[in-house]
Computed example of a mutant assay.
Amino acid sequence: MTREGNISQIWYTRCPVPTPVGLSVQLGLLEDSFSKQGITLNSIIDSKDRNIRSSHFNHHLDYSFRHGGNVPPIRARSEGSRTRLVGITWTDEFQAIITLPDSGIATTKDLAGRRFGIARRPPGIVDFMAATALKGLVSALSLEGLTPDDVEIVDIPLPDSVLDDREGPQLYGLRNRQAYGPEMAALLRGEVDAIYVKGTPGISIANLFATRTVVEFGFHPDPKIRVNSGSPRLLTVDERLAEERPDLVATLIETLKRTSDWAQTHADEVRRFVAREVGASEEVVAAANGPDLHRHLGIGLEAELVDAVGHYKDFLHEWGFLAGSFDIETWIDRRPWALIETRAVA
């Protein structure tokens, strides 16, 4: 495919969430930036090859980049994956603990002694949805001085991995399965009393079943309450790409910055593009991400963003989702940003 430094194609992937990568792909900006250098972009998550798709979670492909939820790349790094963190975005989204209207749970304090459901997937790929639900629970309880010891955590076992969620007739021709189905089923069957939901799928399923919101904290003023798998989201590249072609990483970041700048003045178009990206209506996107979504698609490596990644990494390690801890600063590669500054001066 390549001689050292002479790259003809790059693999990329992004989660079906609001990201400048997803927006840039839809606008054609990424393809344009790389095609000018004779490079073809290939989508990892859309591949028919299961082994290639798995790189969305373990980042094993050479000459690749990923932008999306932070649990898989943090887990991959903790297991020794040779990647570099080159950018961070923060787009707030709906996060809530929900229950059924007749559960008797009206406030967070009412969760004490009740059953909180967390879906658990088979071993293999890091169970990022379980980590997300657990962090949501911890954040919500902390607002009332409670801890997970004050509730009964009930596992909701799932038979399939996240890779299986992109295969089979049960998708009915769609790209992704609706999130939170098993959790909602357990809630309706009376097996649990409350569950965590987030983002566009979370607000959609809460609306569909007319659930009661116990607490909503996706836009809480304290960022450590909002920190979760999607807040912040990470842009990572594999080590070979970072070492052999830092100029291409700089091109990637420059393109995403141009995309973010475009978004600032195109609120309606951003909402429409994100709706297409996440598979939801524009109304749902507006409800889940707020009216200022277009202003929150920037990318950087500011100290507060790095601190947020470190905070969630420590949470994942504390709760057993990581093979081991590591220093976030040693993961970060700021060389592409320095190269961008040099280009701007030249």
Rank of each mutant, 00 (worst) to 15 (best):
29 L>N: 09
32 D>Q: 15
23 L>Y: 05
27 L>W: 04
275 A>P: 14
77 R>T: 00
217 F>P: 12
144 E>P: 08
99 T>N: 09
110 D>W: 02
156 I>L: 07
253 I>D: 05
90 W>R: 13
218 G>E: 07
341 E>P: 06
160 D>P: 00
13 T>V: 11
246 P>R: 03
160 D>T: 02
197 V>C: 09
94 F>E: 08
200 T>S: 15
293 L>H: 11
144 E>Y: 12
23 L>C: 05
282 E>G: 14
54 S>H: 01
172 Y>S: 01
8 S>R: 14
94 F>Y: 15
69 G>E: 12
122 P>G: 06
168 G>D: 01
302 E>V: 06
236 T>S: 06
202 G>E: 05
108 T>Q: 03
14 R>N: 14
198 K>Y: 13
253 I>G: 05
4 E>F: 07
132 T>D: 10
134 L>I: 11
244 E>M: 02
227 V>M: 06
104 G>L: 11
278 V>T: 14
177 R>T: 03
136 G>Q: 07
143 L>Q: 15
85 L>C: 07
216 E>S: 14
160 D>C: 00
334 R>D: 10
219 F>C: 09
316 L>V: 02
149 D>K: 14
65 F>T: 02
345 V>P: 00
313 K>D: 00
15 C>S: 15
6 N>H: 13
294 H>M: 09
75 R>N: 13
223 P>G: 02
100 L>H: 06
224 K>H: 08
198 K>T: 13
185 A>T: 12
31 E>Q: 15
136 G>V: 13
242 A>F: 02
38 G>M: 10
154 V>E: 06
51 N>W: 01
281 S>G: 15
153 I>L: 11
295 R>V: 02
121 R>W: 08
298 G>P: 12
155 D>K: 10
311 H>T: 02
299 I>D: 08
315 F>I: 03
338 A>I: 00
345 V>Y: 05
12 Y>T: 04
25 V>I: 15
241 L>F: 04
249 V>Q: 01
172 Y>D: 04
137 L>F: 09
97 I>L: 15
138 V>W: 12
71 V>W: 08
105 I>N: 09
26 Q>I: 03
165 D>N: 05
78 S>K: 10
28 G>P: 10
308 A>W: 00
32 D>R: 14
231 S>V: 13
293 L>F: 13
240 R>K: 15
148 P>W: 11
71 V>C: 07
47 S>V: 01
72 P>S: 06
114 R>L: 08
39 I>L: 09
314 D>T: 03
47 S>I: 01
249 V>W: 02
146 L>S: 09
100 L>E: 08
25 V>D: 09
43 S>I: 03
137 L>H: 09
54 S>L: 05
96 A>F: 11
207 N>S: 15
227 V>H: 12
157 P>Q: 04
193 D>P: 13
209 F>W: 13
331 W>R: 07
314 D>K: 06
78 S>H: 08
50 R>W: 00
80 G>Q: 01
192 V>F: 12
129 M>G: 10
41 L>C: 08
106 A>W: 02
202 G>Y: 09
287 A>R: 15
286 A>Y: 05
